[in-house]
């Protein structure tokens, strides 16, 4: 924001023609209006609501200050919910990124029919979560599901998957990885294709093997891509909701109640909108903090291709 203002002032100082500046702002105005209407206003309104008690039926809200936040922080349930969310994030992100990178490396070749594979990996990403969740409900069926059939084949004991509080979250993580893979593969592929071939050719001449090429060329030059994927993945995994809503309803025994599901439950099952807004604000704060930390810690380690 500030940078924008400074730049405008600078532009004006340089005596840019005022009509050009004005037309730039006019071109920007639609998106500014849309953003304020659908992003900034709801965010501020949520903050405002989080300071009130507001329940179904009551048309009036009572200002209660930080009461809703106090209730959240002192409830053991909310901490459990936070733990579940981080379990989901930590369980899915590293694996997802590793598998996505491995598959992207495999797909980054000039082979016949590669387009077919690339499409196949991308399919889960464009499938609606709701439709997918219904199919996975069957895969995880304890008695006749595909997952237990596979366990039978490799001689492992059957699991009760979504009906077992210990396994419900891993089950959702597996599905989440499957679902999120396609998107990350595409991003990684784009990153891989941005790496100039001459670097590999030079390395080969110097006698570098495949591992060395990966370690010293591919990986460092993919760090901007990985960084981007990580930030998006952290945000997305903490925002996970649809699969919990459809497949487990937060159960069994709250084991899959993640932040957004909790928010939904407070807001639309208990019609406790003040509390739900407070949950939303806490989530916003967590995501903001995590993103800032990631930028601070990881940015110095990201290698951008010079030039």
């Amino acid at each position: 924001m500030l940078a924008g203002v400074k730049r405008t002032v600078w532009l004006l100082r340089k005596r840019y023609r005022w009509d050009e500046v004005l037309s730039a702002y006019l071109f920007l105005s639609p998106s500014v209006v849309v953003f304020s209407l659908f992003m900034y206003f709801p965010i501020l309104y949520t903050l405002y609501l989080s300071l009130h008690r507001w329940r179904l039926g009551k048309m009036s809200r009572t200002f209660v200050g930080l009461h809703n936040y106090q209730v959240l922080i002192t409830s053991s349930e909310f901490w459990e919910v936070l733990r579940n969310s981080f379990y989901y994030a930590l369980g899915s992100i590293p694996l997802n990124m590793a598998i996505a990178l491995a598959i992207a490396l495999l797909l980054n070749r000039k082979l016949r029919g590669m387009a077919v594979f690339r499409t196949a990996y991308f399919l889960p990403t464009i499938t609606s979560t709701a439709a997918m969740a219904v199919v996975w409900l069957w895969i995880y069926h304890p008695d006749f599901g595909l997952a237990n059939w596979l366990l039978d084949i490799i001689g492992l004991p059957r699991l009760r998957w979504l009906s077992d509080p210990r396994w419900a979250m891993p089950a959702l993580i597996i599905m989440g990885i499957w679902k999120g893979l396609g998107y990350n593969i595409v991003i990684y592929l784009a990153g891989l294709q941005n790496i100039p071939q001459h670097l590999y050719e030079a390395a080969r001449i110097d006698g570098a093997d495949s591992w060395a090429c990966f370690r010293y060329i591919t990986w460092p030059l993919l760090t901007p891509t990985s960084f981007f994927i990580l930030i998006i993945a952290v945000i997305n995994s903490l925002k996970a909701f649809a699969q919990m809503h459809i497949m487990t309803e937060g159960g069994p025994l709250n084991s899959t109640t993640v932040i957004v599901y909790y928010l939904y439950e407070q807001g639309f099952k208990f019609f406790n909108l003040g509390c739900a807004s407070a949950v939303a604000c806490v989530l916003f704060a967590i995501l903001l903090a995590l993103t800032v930390i990631q930028f601070k810690v990881l940015s110095p380690r990201v290698h951008y291709l010079g030039g």
Partner: peptide, 9 residues
């Protein structure tokens, strides 16, 4: 020049 952006706005 301003016509198009004005129209949009």
């Amino acid at each position: 020049k301003l016509a198009v952006p004005l129209a949009i706005a």
